[in-house]
Design a protein around this nucleic acid. Sequence first.
DNA 1: CCTACCGATCGGTAGG
DNA 2: CCTACCGATCGGTAGG
Lengths: 197, 197
Amino acid sequence: MARPRKADINSDNRREHLIATAARLFLQKGYHGTTMRDVAASINMQPGSPFYHFSSKQELLFAVVTDGLRTCIDRLMAIDPESQSPLDYFRTMVRTYTVDMLDERVVSIPLVVDEWRHLEGEPRQTFLDLRRQHEDLWLSALQRLQAAGLVSKANRLSCRFFLSALTRISTWYDSQGSLTPLQIADELVDWVVSPRT
Amino acid sequence: MARPRKADINSDNRREHLIATAARLFLQKGYHGTTMRDVAASINMQPGSPFYHFSSKQELLFAVVTDGLRTCIDRLMAIDPESQSPLDYFRTMVRTYTVDMLDERVVSIPLVVDEWRHLEGEPRQTFLDLRRQHEDLWLSALQRLQAAGLVSKANRLSCRFFLSALTRISTWYDSQGSLTPLQIADELVDWVVSPRT
DNA sequence: CCTACCGATCGGTAGG
DNA sequence: CCTACCGATCGGTAGG
């Protein structure tokens, strides 16, 4: 009768729950600062149970990180560069990324940026390939801006400078602050695009 | 006769050795990924000995992080803004920071950027105060640029964008690569300063 | 996915 | 700063 609620949630997506909650915890406390027990407890699992879904902690990290980056790439690729001006295209990308990053929905983006370095071997390489794909998307957006005369440089180096400014928003963003994610995105676009005064 | 070399180094600076080696390890593996045993072993100490110098691991982190940031601030403050143009002043600052960051001498700069969040309570606040000082230095340099018409914005937000690009250089810099720290610094300056075409 | 557990490691300490 | 150690925690596993 007084039976504690068991894992009565659709067990198909327990794995996804683990990924989502691990993303949040890794983000807050870092990979090594988070224990598998933390992860388990946060979705009412027993200490050993996550290992039913992931054979090791590294494998969970890999899932979190590639899952997040793949979602991010998919959403950016869904934006059509042809139907709008280079500036609008770029702005839409920055807005999408910023909102995804700062909202709860795609929490793993910020840690994709930093925690992947705890991966080793093949998982690490797989991640780096994805990361390259992601960077290429931004590089091509910058090149369109350049072709339109809106930025002076569009190479790997300037792309890294820009992506650093973009990705680190999550480290200082204050949801209680006066700026919304959208406003921050637009400020960044203005900052990157040379003023034509 | 076959006595292993003991701690025959000037014991006055053992503490500094600990800070320097901890900085390197925290940088490589993160705060939680580094054990006090790692730190001890890297300078031929016994596992418990670091606790003679620092009462806890957090205290060591605090020393590493404030030590690095203070050194950084000191070196930036030594640059005289009056004796040179706003652009030269800014360039000198970026060069100094970049070289300090990528060289071995001031290794702790990059982790000052990220690992401070594992601090709590008063040490955390002390660090944040220092960090504000550091940011103000850059903000004032940007304001000089703005007054000279070389950048269009110079507020907290644009300062953060810029500092993100600057600080994250250390995460992608490849000492085997084709670019020297000085070249990277100059590219960043060019990227930030609006082209006056 | 739970129960029950192991072996290893880790931050930290006592006592010199 | 070393020796010797403790208590707690952690990643992971067996067996169901």
